[in-house]
Amino acid sequence: MLHLMSILLLLWKLKKSKSCVGISCRMQECYAIVFCLRYLDLFYQFISVYNTAMKVVFISSTFYLIFLMRFQPPVSATYDRTADSFPYEQYLLGPAAVLGFISAEEWSIPEIFWTASIWLESVSILPQLILLQQLREVENLTAEFVATMGAYRFFYILNWIYRYFAEGYVNWIGWLGGIVQTGLYVDFFYYYAMSKWYGQKLVLP
């Protein structure tokens, strides 16, 4: 729900402020790739209505966000591709593909794609964090958006702890990816929490 909330928060921000300054479209592009790699099973296996519905919502909303930021005025007029410049193609996609192949539990296409999507998701926030570091001042809706983006994976970790003790569930790849993903947020969370605690604007060093 936190993940869904972060997407809805971003959609609301884009509609309300008609601007995507401070928002990284490259991060959304990484998430679109993550979802496409991971949700291929939409076409050949059914787990639950919830599972299928959320996959469709995540894929369609992410592509819609990219469409808004890249091609739909007035939002796209405020998108600066030279500022949002983290070259994820070679820095993130390459390593995720290699790691996905090496660490897959079995060498089948769905499993390799799923594993690569876990690694890619764990670092997909980098373009967004790097963009915010350049801008330093973080507009408050953006801060909320990034905070929920960081919080959702932490709640997965809590669920994984429950599932490990309740049903012996083991997911090494997911656990490691989730720890990396949450770890990348820790310093942002610190400045976000401080800005909330002291009621000041969020300014990154």
Binding site: H3, R38, L40, D41, Q45, I47, N51, M54, K55, F58, E105, E106, S108, I109, P110, E111, F113, W114, Y156, N171, G174
Partner: peptide
């Protein structure tokens, strides 16, 4: 080549 990948999480 196409089996596997059963994961029940989003």
């Amino acid at each position: 080549l196409w089996e596997g990948g059963e994961h029940d999480e989003l």
